[in-house]
């Protein structure tokens, strides 16, 4: 009797323990035993790197299911078919979109479903589809990842170009160019003064010539016997030409006056500032060059410094630096 009673107690204890263990597992995993699920297919264009079976599916940020299967889409090797299982009460209606997203920068991927408009019809399998298909869209972070290689390449090219631009040879050339520009501008400014004088003299001369031509024209029109028909025509053309020339000189005069101000302003204000800016740029380029050499030779020392002995004024001797 005692032996038999002991078996019953042991068996009962083991069964109770197992039942408790299963209940604990169900409790800790938060398994809904009575939950109902619906399967959907999502087709993504391109890679789904970071997404695995059991990855979580969110609906507006709420976890509502998980990924059941991942594989290539039939008849289209550029697409990936992801089968997801969602709770049946999740309203996946017409207009809902699924997209691949990432948690932080850890590379752990999940699927986020944005609901369709209120009152929409639940999506259903079409034709011979085994499961209903949720349309996918590219997430902003996926767009960044897609374009990032191009951006990085362009940035590298830009840095290379800047390095070429800022080398000592080019900076020296820029210095020469500015020096030459300075000389050219000074000459131009001086030349402008001469040109002003020349234009003024020319205008006086043309006025005199125009007056004379007018007199000749009047003389020709009067039918003076000394002027024949060819002479009339020649004088008329001369008058026309001189009047056109006077207008052209007037325009040149205005243009030179305007440019003279600009040139003077450029020489007076912009060139020295450009010179100072180039000096600053040269200093910056030199510092960057020095830093890059230090990093290249010893990255650790460039960041954390090198242990150096320090002079202690109290002991009047050098001591080794601590903590580095």
């Amino acid at each position: 009797m005692e032996t038999r009673a002991s078996y019953i107690m042991v068996g009962g204890f083991v069964l109770t323990f197992l039942a408790g263990l299963i209940a604990f597992a169900v409790w800790i995993a938060k398994v809904d035993l009575d939950a109902e699920y619906t399967d959907y297919d999502i087709y993504f264009h391109g890679t789904v790197s970071g997404l695995y079976k059991r990855s979580v599916v969110y609906y507006l940020g709420i976890p509502v299911g998980d990924v059941r299967d991942i594989g290539l889409a039939p008849n289209d090797p550029q697409k990936v078919r992801v089968q997801v299982r969602l709770r049946s009460e999740v309203p996946v209606t017409e207009g809902a979109k699924a997209r691949l997203d990432f948690q932080g920068l850890t590379g752990v991927a999940y699927i986020e479903i944005n609901g369709g408009p209120p009152g929409g019809q639940p999506i259903k399998p079409v034709g011979d589809q085994e499961r209903a298909v949720i349309p996918s869209e590219l997430s902003p972070i996926m767009e960044v990842f897609t374009n990032a290689p191009n951006l990085v390449n362009e940035a590298i090219e830009a840095v290379v170009q800047i390095q070429k631009l800022l080398d000592d040879k080019n900076l020296s050339h820029v210095g020469h160019i500015l020096k030459n520009t300075d000389k050219l501008s000074a000459n131009l400014a001086n030349g402008t003064e001469d040109l002003d004088k020349l234009v003024a003299d020319t205008r006086t001369l043309i006025n005199k010539a125009s007056t004379t031509a007018d007199k000749l024209s009047k003389l020709a029109d009067s039918g003076n016997a000394l002027i024949d028909d060819d002479g009339k025509q020649m004088v008329a053309e001369a008058v026309k030409t001189l009047q056109s020339a006077q207008q052209a000189i007037g325009r040149i005069d205005a243009l030179v006056a305007a440019n003279s101000d600009n040139v003077t302003d450029f020489i007076g204000s912009s060139l020295p500032e450009i010179t100072r800016m180039i000096i600053d740029l040269r200093a910056t380029a030199r510092n960057l060059s020095r830093l890059s050499k230090r990093i290249e030779q010893n990255p650790g020392a460039a960041i954390f410094g090198t242990p150096q002995p320090q002079y202690d004024l109290k002991t009047r001797s050098e001591k080794k630096e601590k903590g580095k």
Binding site: A25, I28, A29, A35, R54, P63, D66, R85
Partner: peptide, 9 residues
């Protein structure tokens, strides 16, 4: 359905 022990793991 959430995978068993996925969260504690």
């Amino acid at each position: 359905m959430m995978p068993i022990f996925s969260k504690p793991g």
